[in-house]
Design a protein around this nucleic acid. Structure first.
Length: 398
RNA sequence: GCGUCGGUGGCGGAGUGGUCAAUCGCACCUGGCUGUAAACCAGGCGCCCUUGUGGCUACGCAGGUUCGAAUCCUGCCCGGCGCA
């Protein structure tokens, strides 16, 4: 067994919570943890030009296997010299396995299902679908992806072409992309899915984790340079979450992702159960979370890494984070608000621009509006997490 | 002056006897977004209220025809174009 391509050290633990501060060293740099990883699904932080990124903000990026596979194609990335060269980003890169797209384009397709539900809505169940290899059957189901025990059949949201992912294939593609940290292929279930379905999906996710691990190890060269994280699932159910964390924790992954969709209220409980069971010395990445308060809660449960589309998606559509909460810059009251977005923020946008100016740029549909707001939001989360890290280092013990 | 076309909600522009408080776009107002099918999506946008198959006022102005008019007729006002 080759040594892990990453090393994770815990520098301090908070005495009163499960929070820890540490360092994650990848072949492309050191990520101080807890950390917020920027989401660069298609190989770029949406709306944020590279030139605007300051060193360490964000400390790493996560790209998406499904999306890069469809466009421009994993082989293109490989021939470019890997994702770092392709993007021109020499920092650490993670790649999500595409498991989440199975959810968003499958069970959640066309339905009002979100990653974090308000309440236990009576939404569509993650019902069992027949194993199919036929695009026509897919479209009959009104969705783009259908799951069977072997893998996932899906049609491209771009051109309708037919594809199939298996754990082995997802790993192979991630090898071609070449991120520092890659994720096992998993099945993300709806928060509202039945217990029976969650159980069944979890068994599949666990089997796929094992297959992902084997596929990764078979490629000696890739496994020397790329770390593999398993993904814990189990929905809202304590028994399933703990079982999942124990099962995956016993497998030799380099770290762990915590996946799934949640109901807001039990986001932190579910994360807590998982972190109690996972090995202490491996990094934990809470996938797709979150909002400022979610980050703080996650950290207290023992999470080291986060990623979330919110800072860029909200920013792009006019919403900015501030210490007083989120502000929608489209609101009339900001038309002549000549204060910075957040007077305590040290980001370059807050240093030179006002809310009124950004509000104007949004209304004028200027691209800079989306860029500035996204950049500010990234800074805001970065500062939030960094502040928390400092506190852990200050109060904690090794 | 004559002829002709036209004057509709903040703007553009549909509608040409009832089902029109009036399609649609823009602008405007408000929500939503958590491993990005997302520079997106949804709702609202005459006034009033006991919020409803509710009331009132509206389609340049004033009359008229009609059971009923933004839609037809007459006059006036205003604008474009053409001819003097």
């Amino acid at each position: 067994m080759s040594p892990s391509p990453i090393t994770f050290s815990i520098l301090a633990r908070d005495p009163s919570t499960r929070a820890r501060a540490g360092e994650l060293v990848t072949p492309h740099g050191t990520i101080p943890t807890p950390a917020f990883v920027g989401v660069a699904t298609l190989g770029t932080l949406k709306g944020v030009p590279y030139a605007l990124l300051l060193q360490g903000v964000p400390p790493a990026l996560i790209v998406n296997t499904y999306h890069l596979y469809l466009r421009p194609g994993a082989e293109v990335v490989r021939r470019a010299g890997g994702i770092h060269r392709f993007m021109g980003w020499q920092g650490s890169v993670l790649s999500d396995s595409g498991g989440f797209q199975v959810f968003s384009l499958g069970a959640a397709f066309g339905k009002n299902l979100t990653k974090v539900a308000r309440e236990d809505i009576d939404a569509a169940r993650n019902e069992r679908a027949p194993a199919v290899y036929d695009p026509e059957v897919l479209s009959q189901h009104g969705r783009l992806a259908i799951i069977d025990d072997e893998g996932v059949s899906f049609t491209s949201h771009l051109d309708g072409s037919f594809h199939r992912f298996t754990p082995e294939r997802a790993i192979e593609i991630q090898h071609a992309i070449g991120a520092d940290i890659i994720f096992a292929f998993d099945e993300c279930t709806a928060a509202t899915a039945s217990y029976a379905y969650q159980r069944e999906a979890l068994a599949r996710t666990h089997a796929w984790a094992e297959r992902s691990l084997r596929a990764h190890r078979r490629n000696l060269e890739a496994s020397r340079m790329q770390a593999l994280f398993g993904i814990v699932q189990g929905g809202r159910h304590e028994a399933l979450r703990r079982e999942s964390a124990r099962t995956l924790g016993a497998m030799p992954f380099d770290g762990y992702g915590i996946g799934g969709s949640y109901v807001k209220e039990d986001l932190d409980t579910a994360v807590g159960w998982v972190c109690e069971e996972l090995p202490e010395d491996k990094p934990r990445h809470l996938l797709g979370i979150g909002e400022p308060e979610d980050l703080l809660r996650g950290i207290e449960q023992g999470v080291d890494l986060f990623d979330c589309v919110q800072p860029t998606r909200l920013g792009r559509t006019g919403v900015v984070y501030t210490r007083e909460g989120k502000l929608n810059l489209w609101n009339e009251r900001f038309r002549e608000d000549f204060n910075p977005v957040d007077s305590h923020c040290a980001c370059p946008v807050c240093a030179s621009h006002t809310r009124a100016y950004l509000a104007h740029l949004f209304r004028a549909r200027e691209m800079a509006a989306a860029s500035y707001a996204s950049l500010h939001n990234l800074f805001f989360l970065q500062a939030l997490v960094a502040e928390k890290r400092e506190a852990i280092l200050r109060n904690g013990r090794a």
